[in-house]
Amino acid sequence: MYRIVEKDALNEQVSRMVVDAPYVARHAQPGQFIILRVDEEGERIPLTIAGYDREKGTITIIYQKVGATTRLLDTLNVGECLHDFVGPLGKASEFDGMHRVAVVGGGLGVAIAYPQAKALHDMGAEVDLIVGFRNESLIILRDEFDDACTNLFIMTDDGSNGHKGFVTQALDEQLKAGVKYDAVIAIGPLMMMKAVCDMTRPYGIKTIVSMNPIMIDGTGMCGGCRITVDGETKFACVDGPDFDGHKVDFDSALMRGRMFAAEEKEATEKHICRLTGGVR
């Protein structure tokens, strides 16, 4: 069993957990992910590794309470155990030749962007970290972000922190100002990653995206996570999750992402009843 050793709410929707998982902690690298199951009846969900401590044998995950499983996960507290926790899965991110980089995170992607930015920053790269939130009260990980980059850009949809706009706007300004990036790393919702790729394409800047499709086993067995890259079928779990964003077929990925939307809603309804007696 995989014991929760720390848990804290980062904002009203997003929480962080540190979990005892020595096997995973031993080999974890930025860009890799884990799959967990909350209980015996639970589904397997992939979550990116947000941090690891090899000595303590722990893994940090950050999740947003959006679906049935993440809500169920959030009912567990320090000292309790997750039923299953396996990894590290997927390929580690490759940072070779990246000296000047923009790391762009949107939605929950900001949490995933952090370890990437940190790794690059620790390597000595000059990192522009661009993250976006809906409003100021939802801003998370501010200190961590500060430690992981050269320049930090925090954008809010409503401008409540004084910087109104999407992450793409901040990136656009840097590109227009003539900043020469070796690479842009975009992590977040598919629409956001697609927008970043469309923006960098005319500049010919290598753009890496982190794909997070529906999957079951995470080891190449189910093929549910297949995406089309440069006209070829790839499995995000073993060939990714990082891909060359200019070659990813986002439209097909967006369609596949909606495959179980109705069922996800049904499960959430059902489990809200189970968790709270119907109170939302």
Partner: peptide
């Protein structure tokens, strides 16, 4: 994952 027992088992 016992999807035939969805949503009791949570995999659809």
């Amino acid at each position: 994952m016992k999807a035939y027992d969805f949503p009791n088992h949570m995999t659809p």
